[in-house]
Nucleic acid binder design. Structure first.
Lengths: 192, 192
DNA sequence: CTTTTTTTGTAGTGTTCACTAAAAAATTCC
DNA sequence: GGAATTTTTTAGTGAACACTACAAAAAAAG
């Protein structure tokens, strides 16, 4: 099954590449922060083409989330391959802090903060679903590594990440975010 | 200087009481989450009266923040009167978690999450200013209690609170928020 | 009672938003 | 080449938003 050529006028853009570029736009501005006018102009695609490809603004956001998940997987790969849960926790928060402060535009986390207060339920649901899956995979890995109360720890890590992301978005300097991540992680691995 | 009666038609509402009620509305829905139509209907005041009293939607939000600061001062009073910094840190996060989950409507923190992604700069600035003052007073108290690196610790506490508030807003159960607050606080007071 | 002053209620304003109807353009099929 | 099919372009649409012009109403002052 190779890519059979379809009849009709061909698409003038690559759908996946558009999702990738939408990722950066939504990451920088949030789902509500950038409107369709600016979005279509930045992407070089007129609204009807965008709607034919993605169905809605939330559909484009879903594509952006997909692209973001790849960045995220890369950023957290080291943490997920740690040999013990303490190392995993430390790397997890350190990687989050680095990812949330690496680019001066695009601060914080697209999943945790991209559609938080949006009125669009589809956009909120898409972000929640990605977050839910991320939390689940953290809990599973912590379980495999023998951490005590892994679900609880995973939820605490998510809450810490929400704090790091929000702090980064609010303009706190990168050093502050990185230092807070380290301080919180150090505390979490010392408990008991 | 008693309250000299003014000439002209008297106000039909109490301005401070309106700020108090606006606090609950903004706390529940966020600055962007509730529009003027619903706002004026819930307050029983027509738009021109509201604008004569507060100047703008952001002005009403400022009044709501003032009312919120009183709730907040009460909630954190115990923490600020702690005799050592470790007790203060523990009470700080415990009180935050309690305040952010006490009411099933109105989850999270109005200051940290009420106007975060708002397009209205005045609203964002008002919230940032309250947050800045709160962070400063935490740092001062931690300094007085002899904590090491009090500014850094205060910033870490703010980041933790952002996480607790965001977690509460996102629908995590109260027990999860309270448990995370305790877990993070325990870690922070054990460092070194 | 008339004038003056201030607030209220009515009824909008312009702007921005996500989204789309309809026609023109670009391709494949026969 | 003509018909069929799909996408692009042009040019909007209605809805929601914060905000306001204007006149009626309610009080004090003279």
């Amino acid at each position: 099954m190779n890519t059979t050529k379809k009849v009709g006028r061909p698409r003038s853009f690559d759908q996946a590449a558009l999702g990738e570029r939408a990722k950066d736009l939504f990451w920088a501005r949030g789902f509500e922060g950038i409107g369709l006018a600016e979005l279509t102009q930045a992407l070089g695609v007129k609204p009807p083409s965008l709607y034919a490809a993605f169905g809605s603004k939330a559909g484009l956001f879903r594509a952006a989330l997909d692209a973001y998940r790849h960045d995220s997987a890369e950023a957290f790969a080291e943490a997920f391959t740690a040999a013990d849960w303490r190392t995993m926790v430390r790397r997890m928060l350190a990687s989050a802090a680095r990812m949330y402060t690496r680019h001066n535009d695009r601060r914080g986390c697209l999943v945790l903060d991209g559609a938080r207060d949006s009125a669009d339920q589809a956009a909120r649901d898409a972000a929640s679903e990605v977050r839910r899956r991320f939390a689940r995979s953290m809990a599973e890995r912590l379980t495999a590594l023998g951490a005590a109360e892994p679900e609880r720890l995973a939820e605490t890590l998510i809450i810490a990440m929400i704090g790091l992301s929000g702090g980064a978005r609010s303009g706190l300097p990168a050093e502050t975010i990185l230092a807070a991540a380290e301080q919180i992680a150090d505390g979490l691995v010392q408990d008991h």
